[in-house]
């Protein structure tokens, strides 16, 4: 359900060889998807430091999407496996922080999966709309008298 027309902000990290290429393919195929995603290009999903994700959530991003090559296909051999391990632990910790683990999504999208990329973005946007905006706890710290 749409919470008063809330439009989630999604930060994406796409690996150059697979996901970024798949996203481009969605474009050349003119497959439409929601405009909520802002992509940062990296060479490999293994480049994504969990600190980047923490920063994004600290700045109020509603969802983070990380895209890499399918297991076994990583252009750099094992980067995506490292990403998988890091994201698994990070999701666990996000839960401890009171941030719904569904807000962090790791997807394997190959260079030929344009339609799938579009589907993932549409799906994630819908999930985030249902979850609502990230609890910002903006009045971080101080007094209940503020």
């Amino acid at each position: 359900m749409d919470r008063n027309g809330f439009e989630p902000l999604i930060l994406g990290f796409a690996c150059n060889w697979c996901t970024y290429a798949g996203a481009d393919l969605a474009g050349t195929s003119r497959i439409q998807y929601p405009p909520n995603l802002r992509m940062i290009r990296v060479m490999c999903s293994g480049r994504v430091d969990p600190t980047f994700v923490l920063k994004a959530f600290a700045r109020g991003v509603d969802g983070v999407l990380i895209g890499g090559c399918h297991p076994g296909d990583c252009h750099y051999m094992e980067g995506n496996y490292k990403a998988r391990r890091r994201i698994h632990l990070l999701r666990k910790m996000l839960r401890d922080f009171g941030i719904e683990p569904e807000r962090l999504r790791l997807e394997w999208v190959s260079a030929s999966e344009g339609a799938r990329f579009a589907q993932v973005v549409a799906d994630f946007t819908k999930t985030l709309k249902e979850l609502g905006p990230l609890k910002k706890d903006a009045k971080i710290a101080v007094s209940q008298q503020d």
Binding site: M43, G46, R47, V48, D49, P50, E78, G79, K82, R86
Partner: peptide, 10 residues
């Protein structure tokens, strides 16, 4: 080095 960034992230 191919620049994948896996070392840097860790």
């Amino acid at each position: 080095c191919k620049g994948c960034g896996t070392c840097g992230a860790a």
